[in-house]
Structure formats: C-alpha cells, structure tokens
Amino acid sequence: MRINDTLRDYLTIAACFFIAFILAVLPFPEWAERFRPNWVGLVLIYWCIATPTKVTVGIGWIVGLILDVLFDSPLLGQLALAYALLAFLSVKMHLRIRMYPRWQQAVVILILLVVIQFLIIWIRIMLSQPAKFTNFWISVLISMLIWPWTFALLRNVRRRMGIR
C-alpha cells in the first residue's frame, strides 16, 4: 500500500515534468521565443520546496540531463549540472521560501533562475560555445511573473493527489 502511494506520487511529479518539457519545446513564433518562461525550472523549484524529501538534487540532475538531450546541448551534462545546482539551492532554502508571501517568493525564484542562467552561460563560455548575456532576461522576468499562478496550480495538483 505504501509503496503504491510513493509510486503514485512519483508518477504525478513525473507527469508535471512531462508537461513542462512539452511547454519548453512547443514551437513559438520567432518574435515570441524570448518570452518563453523557464517552465522546467519553475516546476523543479516548486517540487523541491514542496517535497524536499522526494525531489532532490538527483531528480534535478536527471531533469537537466533530459533537457540536455531535448535542447541538443553541444555537450551532454552541462544543463544537468545547472539544474542539479538549482535543485540543491531550492531544497536548501525550502523552509525559508515557504514562509515568504507569494511575491517575495517570486523574487527569490527570479534570483535562483538568474543564478542558473549565469552558470549556464558561464559553462558555455568556458566550452567556447555561442552564448549571449542579453537574451535571457525577459524569459526570466516572465518566469517570475507567472510564478504565483504556477505555484497555485501545482499546489492544487499536490493537494488533490495527497502528496506530502
């Protein structure tokens, strides 16, 4: 019975990530590309602060590795590294983030995502791949703006499925 429950929890979380992956690669018109929020990052942060015992660094790493393949990174593992760090920071701060009011949370999420973007760009520069510091700001800001709704939606999912 208990094993069944855990399995169901993990399947729910996996389904959330699955939808986030689809949203991440859904074709957008050229001009709208830069407005695409970091869906996978938001979902990962949510599950890290909501269930820090279930979704941890390891899951973040696997999610990053899948993104590596999905985005066809020049080298496998560069996004895996970044998302492992994102999961680590979120888990470390989960108690504090939970206490904050929704908009303050959004600011913390902004900072987390900017840190990750800087890490990703830094890795790209280290490996001498094309990288720009200019085109992620709008995406990160939009991620921050939609955080409250993402949070509410995912909390609904979590409560409905009784995941704790």
Binding site: V57, G58, L65, L76, G77, A84
Partner: peptide, 13 residues
C-alpha cells in the same frame, strides 16, 4: 550528492 553529481556531469561532458 551535489558534489558527486557535479563531478558526474563533468565526466559526462
């Protein structure tokens, strides 16, 4: 775990 995974990422790269 983070350190292990970071090393693993670098290894995979």
């Amino acid at each position: 775990r983070l350190i292990i995974l970071v090393l693993l990422s670098v290894l995979i790269m």
